[in-house]
Design a protein around this nucleic acid. Structure first.
Length: 105
DNA sequence: TTTCTGACACTAG
DNA sequence: CCTAGTGCCAGAA
């Protein structure tokens, strides 16, 4: 059972690691992509083991970042070349930045 | 075991 | 655009 959790976390990290530069994914997207767990679990995985992956490429479905790390998130994303919305500089243009890994597979 | 809290999401006002 | 309430899974007190 513990192995399952470990595997799940590893899978999440793997997906995040596969996100190409300049591209992003949502917590819910990852959960849906894996077909297991929920957005909250994904967020927890990032919190505990996301320090080794491009956690800054993961954000909320609406393109906003978590208040806890918003500052770093914005900076890193801009550094990666992620398209931000003209309206709100604190949000990412999900329509263009969302990784197609879900569709391409 | 119960209760709270959290890098979330969705619906309603 | 914003806040409030509810559901979700998991970990800590």
């Amino acid at each position: 059972v513990a192995a399952d959790k470990c595997r799940y976390a590893e899978r999440v990290l793997d997906v995040v690691d596969r996100i190409p530069t300049g591209r992003v994914l949502a917590y819910g997207d990852i959960a849906d992509y894996l077909g297991e767990g929920s957005a909250r679990v994904v967020g927890h995985v990032m919190a505990i083991s996301g320090h080794e992956v491009a956690w800054h490429r993961v954000l909320r479905t609406d393109g906003s970042c978590a208040p806890r790390v918003r500052a770093r998130q914005v900076v890193l994303l801009r550094a990666e070349g992620v398209p931000f919305r003209a309206d709100r500089a604190d949000r990412v243009d999900m329509a263009a930045a969302r990784w197609d890994g879900n569709s391409v597979k």
